[in-house]
Design a protein around this nucleic acid. Structure first.
Length: 352
DNA sequence: GGGAATT
DNA sequence: AATTCCCAACGCGGC
DNA sequence: GCCGCG
């Protein structure tokens, strides 16, 4: 989804919805005063606290900040120490939004940034703490896309991502089923995988990695995993870039592992109707959900900003950071081997 | 959402 | 003073 | 070459 998308026919800009204003004859609806917030000794100004970021279900900026504060303990570990790319929707998620890499101007002095030079130098936000998270929320940041690598070694990702994107009429159910079949295959390669709901139709598998490979190597490896899955389940899996050629299969998007590419963080909301959230699952839940969700449920929404605000954040993956794995690279994979053109592009060996 | 550039 | 602009990016494959 | 794609 591009951040500039908008819901068909919903051009109405988000408007201030009076906060009740029990106003018996009181002053004419005062333009909502900026809210003052303090967190961990940092002070924050929040304009338009009652603006609706999502209309259905209704989520005001104020409620959104409460959500972020609530999930912060579980969310921050996935943002901390990484360059952050965000999408922002200052007019609400039904109005156009935009990607932002460069740190928004006017940041408080205590917001950490890091400048990385690719084609051009970019000063990224590094969201290490609650005040920074809330400041981003106050800036109408809706999606959090941390780099796959930490600032200390930005070109040595410490996780790989397998993005399972079911093409309608397939839906979450089918993505969960594929993940369940992928799991033993990955385990056979010594790769524990951690699943999360994308917040859209699909599922993301995170594979904790020893940070010794560059983005290209990781991307090549995940592509070869996709090819393996494609050979094994040709009717269920596709690696096609062109939507028209994907058919009713699960698109395995390995390109998300490339240089400078990002994946939406755990607990990041999505700028879609329903205020869905990308949510970490335990494998038992993957199995349970696969059994519960109706087939072809390509619109299934499980967890939302309001539901998590109400019920609490749940839990995180356990053991992720202890599981960092080496990639089972065949000899020569990813290394310039003088004259040693190996066949097959380095597919992982597969216990068939 | 807000700073900068443009009218 | 008011309005508009700007906020990523890049390679790959199909045509 | 341009477009769509993520």
């Amino acid at each position: 989804m591009g951040p500039t998308e908008r819901e068909a026919g919903a051009a109405t800009p988000a408007r201030e919805r009076g906060t009740g204003t029990a106003g018996a004859g009181s002053a004419p609806a005062a333009p909502a005063a900026p809210l003052r917030l303090a967190a961990e000794g940092r002070e924050l100004r929040v304009t338009h606290p009652d603006r609706l970021l999502w209309r259905d279900p209704p989520v005001t900026k104020r409620a959104y900040l409460a959500y972020l504060a609530r999930v912060a303990p579980l969310m921050l570990p996935w943002l901390r120490g990484r360059p952050l790319v965000v999408t922002r929707y200052p007019g609400g998620v039904e109005a156009p939004g935009f990607y932002q890499k460069e740190t928004p101007a006017g940041r408080p002095a205590w917001v950490r940034t890091v400048t990385l030079t690719g084609r051009r130098p970019v000063r990224y936000v590094v969201c290490d703490d609650l005040p920074t998270l809330l400041w981003l929320g106050s800036q109408a940041v809706v999606e959090f896309h941390p780099w796959n690598a930490p600032v200390e070694h930005p070109h040595r990702p410490d996780w790989a991502v397998i993005d399972l994107d079911p093409q309608p009429p397939l839906g979450l159910r089918e993505a969960l089923e594929l993940a369940l079949d992928l799991r033993p295959l990955l385990a056979g390669l010594g790769l524990p995988a951690f699943p999360k709901l994308s917040g859209g139709r699909g599922l993301h598998l995170f594979l904790p990695l020893e940070p010794r490979y560059d983005e290209r190597e990781v991307q090549r490896f995940v592509r070869s995993l996709g090819e393996l899955a494609l050979r094994r389940w040709p009717g269920r899996v596709t690696l096609e870039r062109a939507v028209a050629r994907r058919g009713a299969r699960i698109y395995v998007d390995f390109l998300q592992n490339g240089p400078g590419r990002t994946m939406v963080a755990v607990f990041s909301p999505r700028p879609r109707p329903g205020a869905p959230v990308s949510f970490p699952l335990a494998w038992e839940e993957v199995g349970r959900l696969a059994a519960e969700i109706p087939t072809d449920s390509h619109r299934y929404t499980l967890l939302t900003v309001p539901s998590l605000l109400e019920a609490g954040a749940g839990r995180a993956w356990t053991g992720f950071w202890q599981a960092r794995s080496p990639l089972p690279l065949p000899p020569g994979h990813g290394r310039q081997e003088p004259g040693g053109a190996q066949r097959g592009g380095g597919s992982p060996s597969c216990p068939t």
